[in-house]
Design a protein around this nucleic acid. Structure first.
Length: 530
RNA sequence: GGGGCGGUAGCUCAGCCGGUCAGAGCAUCGGACUCAUAAUCCGUGGGUCGUGGGUUCAAGUCCCACCCGCCCUACCA
């Protein structure tokens, strides 16, 4: 069972994907939530020193895009191009997303390989021609699922009677994969996470699977079925394959070998089934190894309602970043909401956490330490004297925080608790300063007093050095400022090159470093807005 | 209809196999301090643990019913 990473060569990349987002609309908070989570996860692994591949992109085929484009008087391709260039890519840049690739399903590197993949399945007898029968709304021009019909078999949109229609389609023999899928879930209990999502998937598969129609012939915005071009490939089959085509499937074997399969597929829970059932079945059918994990994140709720494209009560990502800043935005959702659960958020809660955790605890700590080193040592980090029990406790606190954060964030995708561990350390350092009261020690001008003062401030600065590294995956802009403020780069090199494994090694920031009080890390919010 | 999850201090939530489990963070209030972004540190607050029954020496913690909210029950990305 290929549950995890793959090729024996140690070069195998930690491969993480987001869903490829449907270009029907502009990105909203939910899209950004998933994408930021993946970015933090991959940045964390890069700081572990691992080879990483972070993929995102857009899903551009399908009837909805076609219709939306028509209603705007442009071709589907034009519509997709416009949204990708004007909305999607700019937002990811704005949010500091460090993706390694961005795939679009209309790109030839994708469409050609999708055809090959489907042709392979056809040749292997995994796909057959059949008829799909179901309730069809002539006004919508599409099939409905029986469950969504209103009483009396009315179309939920048009409130008009549907008719039963039959369409010739190609089907994938999904029904044959139930037992193998269950076996796989059993052998890989962490394949679908969180556990609640796994239970739903397992229960669903146990009910028995039906074959999946994988072609459409009522519209043409899609990838043609190679042996029967009157049909286009069902958009989900098309979309899922991006995870393979983007990393060289069928075109760049070397790259494919060192990247495939994905270690983590991040998905919204609305598309869990496609990733946890259909996708592995497709891969089994074609003899490819299976991904390591499918992790479903929850909904963002605002005022108790789900955030989504249909519910545009939405606050846009940019509204929030304009007020709170990009780094605080990246931090907030991961800190406030346990990853994998639905989470309610509010402007008030964001403000509260910004002020308490970011400005007061973290930002202010950086300020006071830099200020004192400036005031008492002219901005040159002093040589510490002997460490006492208090300093020992700080070093141990750092080791604990680092170990916890590494496991929780890097392995478990428990960003909330992991960040909590780092911020517990920040609070510990604030407490250490209160206890040691360096501003009082500074009044003792004896050599012993000055040595003690040096030890205290060195301890605080060294703690900040570690915090900058630990928080860099989440708040790269802020941590870069802190790194500069500590004068770390000339001695330790670029922040992004700092390794998680070295964070807790005490004493890395050398005496003599030039510490300056830079700009305020998290300025107080103008409370105009509430 | 069937299945699942949740309803614990003002807010967001921890509480595994029943017996210091009535908690944490934030907010509030009081105190300390002054290096710092009027920040920090310490202390404090009494919430019928959704409702009503039941089991037990003992129940947020088990059982039953009910109320409320959410999710799943296949081809919408």
């Amino acid at each position: 069972m290929a549950a995890t990473g793959s090729t024996a060569s140690g070069e195998s990349a930690f491969y993480v994907s987001t869903p490829i987002y449907y270009v029907n609309d502009a990105p909203h908070l939910g899209h950004a939530y998933t994408t930021v989570a993946g970015d933090v996860l991959t940045r964390w692994h890069r700081q572990r020193g691992e080879k990483v591949w972070y993929l995102t992109g857009t899903d551009e085929h399908g009837q909805k895009v076609m219709r939306t484009a028509e209603s705007h008087g442009v071709t589907p391709q034009e519509w997709a191009d416009k949204l990708v260039e004007e909305a999607w890519k700019p937002l990811w840049e704005h949010l500091q997303i460090a993706n390694d690739d961005f795939i679009r399903t209309t790109e030839e590197r994708h469409t050609r390989r999708v055809q090959e993949f489907v042709q392979d399945l056809y040749d292997k007898g995994e796909i057959y021609r059949g008829g799909y029968e179901g309730p069809y709304c002539v006004h919508c021009e599409e099939f409905k699922s029986p469950g969504e019909l209103l009483e009396g078999d009315l179309c939920p949109i048009h409130k008009k009677p549907i008719e039963w229609l039959q369409e010739e389609n190609y089907f994938f023999k999904l029904s044959e994969y139930g037992p193998r899928l269950l076996e796989f879930y059993e052998a890989n209990p962490d394949f679908v996470q969180p556990a609640s999502a796994r239970n739903e998937v397992v229960q669903f598969v146990r009910q028995g699977l039906q074959d999946l129609s994988i072609s459409r012939s009522t519209f043409d915005w899609g990838i043609p079925i190679p042996w029967d071009p009157k049909h286009v490939i069902y958009v989900w089959i098309d979309a899922l394959l991006n995870y393979a085509t983007a990393v060289g499937y069928g075109s760049d074997q070397a790259k494919f070998d060192t990247t495939w399969p994905a270690d983590v597929h991040l998905v919204g829970k609305d598309i869990l089934r496609f990733h946890a059932v259909i996708w592995p079945a497709m891969l089994m059918a074609n003899g490819l190894s299976l991904p390591g994990r499918v992790f479903a994140n929850g909904w963002l709720m605002v005022g108790g309602e789900k955030m989504s494209k249909s519910n545009l009560t939405g606050i846009s990502p940019r509204e929030l970043t304009e007020h709170f800043g990009v780094d605080a935005y990246r931090y907030y959702f991961l800190r406030a909401i346990p990853f994998g659960q639905d989470g309610s958020f509010s402007w008030e809660d964001f403000s509260a956490r910004y002020t308490s955790e970011l400005a007061n605890d973290f930002g202010n700590l950086a300020s006071r330490v830099a200020a004192m080193i400036g005031k008492y040592f002219d901005g040159t980090l002093p040589e510490p004297g002997d460490a006492g029990a208090a300093e020992q406790a700080i070093a141990e606190g750092l080791a604990t925080a680092t170990a916890q954060a590494d496991r929780l964030i890097g392995d478990n995708l428990d960003f909330s608790t992991g960040l909590g561990a780092i911020f517990d350390f920040v609070k510990q350092v604030n407490g250490y300063l209160s206890d040691q009261a360096p501003w009082k020690v500074a009044k003792d001008e004896s050599p012993e007093g000055q040595a003690r003062l040096a030890t205290i401030l060195y301890t605080a600065a060294e703690s900040l050095r570690a915090v900058a590294v630990l928080l860099n995956p989440v708040m790269p802009g802020t941590c870069e400022k802190l790194w500069a403020s500590l004068g770390a780069e000339p001695h330790l090199g670029p922040l992004a090159d700092q390794r998680i494994a070295d964070v807790a090694k005490w004493g890395r920031l050398p005496a003599g470093a030039s510490v300056v009080k830079g700009e305020i890390l998290f300025p107080r919010l103008d409370d105009a807005k509430s």
